[in-house]
Structures are given as structure tokens and as C-alpha cells.
Design a protein around this nucleic acid. Sequence first.
DNA 1: GCAAGTCAAGAGCAGTGCTCACATTTGTTG
DNA 2: CAACAAATGTGAGCACTGCTCTTGACTTGC
Lengths: 244, 244
Amino acid sequence: MPQTATAPPARPSTPRERARAQTIRDIVRIGREHLAQHGAAALSLRAVARELGVVSSAVYRYVENREELLTLLLVDAYNELGDAVDAAVQACPEGDFTARFEALGVAVRDWALAQPPSYALLFGSPVPGYQAPAERTTGPGTRVIGTLAAILDGAWRAGQLSRADPRGAAEAAQLAADLAKIRGEMGLAVPDPELARGVLVWTSLFGAVSFEVFGQYGKDTFAARDKLFAHHLAVLAGVAGLRS
Amino acid sequence: MPQTATAPPARPSTPRERARAQTIRDIVRIGREHLAQHGAAALSLRAVARELGVVSSAVYRYVENREELLTLLLVDAYNELGDAVDAAVQACPEGDFTARFEALGVAVRDWALAQPPSYALLFGSPVPGYQAPAERTTGPGTRVIGTLAAILDGAWRAGQLSRADPRGAAEAAQLAADLAKIRGEMGLAVPDPELARGVLVWTSLFGAVSFEVFGQYGKDTFAARDKLFAHHLAVLAGVAGLRS
DNA sequence: GCAAGTCAAGAGCAGTGCTCACATTTGTTG
DNA sequence: CAACAAATGTGAGCACTGCTCTTGACTTGC
């Protein structure tokens, strides 16, 4: 049974293992190019093999199947997005939570618009017949929401998060169990109503980006899309309770 | 050159034309089943032909290619969603705009959860290599946003839409040209700030539904998803300016 | 009745994912 | 150093896909 990328090699790296790791990196690199150019569904192992200068069956020595290559690209893209978001957020003053939130939103949008197929792989309709293995993707896949939660939690702890207005309070109360679990897992202090609104802000942010990336706005409904998104971010900051 | 579904036959329907139309309906019906079961990317003309009891090349007499079948299914799904939303909205009292808005949201979510692949075809990542022809899809594709706009516009005309709070007003002003065009095309009276918020509510609604349908919440982060969505709807109603 | 139009069939092309038997290279060990 | 074994590359092959084209059968309108 060939050792695939699922199990990383042990610490002492023999030359062979390094060559193997390099080949896998090449495969991922070529796969990423193909993904960017033709989209996830058009990603072909045979095409990757051709570009790698090797016969098609040879790549199966390094990658179990097409799904695993998709998973590798998924993790790759999640980390790229996470890095971009973290860099943008950390470029803002530590105490300016509104600026940090808006930097996060802009970073997500910029990254998505720069590489739509990768964004589609992460946040679009799931590739049919492909279920991302949770144990390998939840880590990098939760980086953005983790950063967002940290921003809102920081604002709360700093006393800079306005209390949510009562609209929706009744429904939020019914989410107490779920919210408590999230608060525990992520080590947050934000109370229920504000946390629930944070979830909405999270989904709304990606909803706005997805509409734009996936072309739901049509061809020429919005000319000033940057401004539209800036407006959305400003309103969402208010929904989250951040000071303007 | 075979006459495909692009050009509908003239009024006087000969038996041949009726048989032809029936065959196309059968193809769409089978295609819809395959779409529901295996997703858009796995939709195979050959499989449809098999189930139709005909050799694969025969379906090309009725459907130009795979793309056109996808377009037919797209229009079909848009209309199904539009019908579901309209029925839900019209079941509410005419003057209760908040109830109408929430009925719209619930209808979208219910329809999406009932048939994820169809929802994915409409609002997920675009099928690679496939660009929906605008002249055939914009009509049915804008039914939901049209209904939503009608609700908010009705509320505004009835004096039941609170003015948007100033957050985001500066950004909304920069959208004046786009918003004026939308207002003209759809015959609306809502002023800029409220209209801009309506756009955000629209994208946010579908963002929340997409996250749930596409599995972004993970497996067990939220147990009470109905309540979560109800909360989102309540908050979004407030964002739109609807009275609670 | 016959020509025109329509339709289904089947072969075929180029591509895909993936498997398997075989050959070759490479690193380790007697 | 030679022999062995593990890792790697090869090419054929299977079953599938979208799509085209030719051929023959059928239906319809004149």
C-alpha cells in the first residue's frame, strides 16, 4: 500500500522522503494553477500528471485519488485565506476593533475576488461526491471565524461592544445551549445576544462576498461594488455592536 | 439543424410538436431527478438517455448540449423557488410587512433544505465552463429579489419602514447612481439608505441559507438551526427597518 | 404515392478516474 | 561490492463522460 499524503513522514527526513514531499508540493502547486484557471470540477489528475511530465498513473503514488488532491488544495486555500486575513487584521491598531473587523471583511473579499475558483471550493456548493474530511479541514477552516470571534470578544472585554438591541432577543435565548458550547470551545466572554449577532454578521459577510464572486448581482446592476461592500461592512459593524 | 428548446414552437401545435414538447418535458423531469440525487456536476446526458430508454445521441435532438439542459433545470428551479416564495408571502396579511418578510425568508430556506442540489445550482459556485444565458434566466432569477423589494417598498409607502440609522449613510450616498437605476427599473419609492440596507438584507438572507445548506456550520455546531435562522430573520427585519 | 422532414441508432473520437502487471530506479544490507 | 527489497515510473486497459457523424427507418404534408 503506497504511503499517501495522509500520513506525514517521520522527523528524520531521508533524501527519498524529501524528494517525495517535493513531488507532492509540485502536484499541489500544479493543481492550484489548474484550479485557478479552470475551476475545481475541471481539475484533472491526468492533466496534472502531464504537466508534471509523468504518466497519469504515477501521480497515484503520491495522491490517493482526486478527492485527496482536492482536500490538499482545500487546506492550502484555507490557510492562504487565513494568512491574508490575519495579516490585514494585525495591520490595524490593536484597540480599534471596528477597523479590525472591516479589515477582515475587506481581506476576505479581496482574496475571494483574486481567486474565485479557490473561494468557490471553500464556500461554494460542495463538489459532488466529495465530502471534505473534517479532521483535516476544520482546523484551517475555522481560522477566519476564529479571528472574527476574537475581534468581537476583544471589543466586548474592552467594553466597546454595545449591547444588542432587543430585536431577536427571544430567539437568541432559545440558542443558549449552542451558544454556550461555542463560548466554551472558543474561550469567549461575549454574552448570548451579541454572540448570536456575531454569527449573523459572519454569515452575512460571506453572503455578500459570495453574491459578488458568484455573479448573483448580474452583469451591471452595481457599478460601484467596492462602495456597496463598504456600505455592507459598515452596517454589519453596527449589527455586531461595534462603535463607528 | 435540429430545432432545440431554445426557440419554442409556434402556437398551432401539430401532433409532432406536442410529442416533441412532451419529450423535452420528460428530459427535464429525469434531469431534475438526477440533479436532486447526484448534483449538477454529476448530471449526465447519457444517464438521462438511458432512463429515457433511448440511445445517448438521441437526446441531442431535443437538447443542444449539456449546458442547455442545465439552463432548463435552472429556469425550472428558479420558478419553483419563486412559486414557493410567492405562495408563502401571499398567505400573510397584506399589511403585515414584517410577517411577509419572514415568510419569504422561511420559504427560501425550506426550499433550499428540501433540495440542496437545486439550490446549489442557483446560488452556489457556478458550474465550471457554464455561463447561464442572461436572456433566459434573469426573468425567473429575479423573482425572489423582486418580491423582497416589493415588500420593503410596500412598507415604505405605507409609512411602516423606519429610517435607517446613520451608520453606513456616507457609503450609501456613493451608491446613488446604482440605487437610482434599481429604483427606476423596479419602480420603487424607497430612498437610498433604506434601499441599500435592503440589498444587504437580501445577500445576508442567502448567506445564512447557503451556510446551512453548504455545510459551513459543521456537523454539530448548531443543534437548533431553526431557531438560529429565526433569530437571523428577526435581526435582518430590524436591519431592513421593518417594525417588530 | 412520393419527396421532404424528422428521428433513432450505432460507431467513433477525445477525454476522464482509476487499477494492475510489469519494468526501472534507488537505498540498504549482507 | 553485489544482492535484495522498497519505492517509483510505465503502459495497457476498463468503464465512464460529452459530443459528432453517417446510416437507415419513419412520419408528415403535398
